[in-house]
Design a binder for these strands. Sequence first.
DNA 1: AATGGTCAAGTCAGC
DNA 2: GCTGACTTGACCATT
Length: 304
Amino acid sequence: MRIGYPCINRSIGCSASRTFRLASYSEARLCEAVNQNIDCLTRILAYNIREGLLFFRISSDMIPFASHPLCAADWQGTFRGRLSALGTFIRNYRIRISMHPDQFILLNARDEDVYNRSVAELAYHAELLDLMGLSATAKIQLHVGGIYGDREESIKRFLERYGRLDETIVRRLVIENDDSRYPLADCLRISRECGVPVLFDSFHHAVFSSGEGLHDSALSAADTWSSGDGLPMVDYSSQYPSGRPGKHAEHLDPDDFARFLAETAPLDFDCMLEIKDKESAARSALGIATGDPRLVTGLKGQRE
DNA sequence: AATGGTCAAGTCAGC
DNA sequence: GCTGACTTGACCATT
């Protein structure tokens, strides 16, 4: 099991998702942001290696506006060398990589324009990972999409559009159960139809499911991954106490995470900690997973 | 230098 | 019909 966290490191003082306003777009501005993002990502990954955190989600903002019609810049050519070097670094240290396009990306959108923009954005994600020379184990995780008043029709539309995707996207795309629209059961059904792997989000499942148990759920999602996909990925989080159900916790709850590990054992997977204090939570999780209490921060009474 | 309104993009629940 | 949550930071105009 590798353990990691998404996109942002809160302690080393740089951001690998620097962007700018569309109104101030220029090629120079783009290059400046991308160079800074690559610099910072390199620093974050070096930090992660030192800490034993070998799973990381790269921000979709790595190349700002990459799929926007306004972006005429040849970022692929400009950054080919740097991205390739970064990818070599990632492969050498056997770091697992994921990406997660955000809520605007809807493969099953009713609106053709939204659908077309979504495919363009997925193509950008795949191209970025390709330029880094990463294998198909580097995944792009996506939710199934909207309901649009008709779940069955919207699932059919997802399947039909999935079938039309370019292979460069298909080899990396996985779907994740969300916390309000498409639960694990739907994702598994879709996977049986088209073969897309299912990334199990344990927290979404706790918030939104028909009550299937954690152990069996993690197992059935893991079954949808083939050898070329790498170890299954799982997202973990826990509830922010007294917050809206589904709100992510600020700190890792050591007891909850230990219970999560016990219930999913002996299944092996790469685990993404979707906790707001990021690398701190991931270090604690690593401490719990490896039995090293020195890594576990946030002792009793310090939780929110 | 500090601040706070706003940022490419969609959906859906709640008023 | 409109607003806010999602999730969240950080850009940048303004002071």
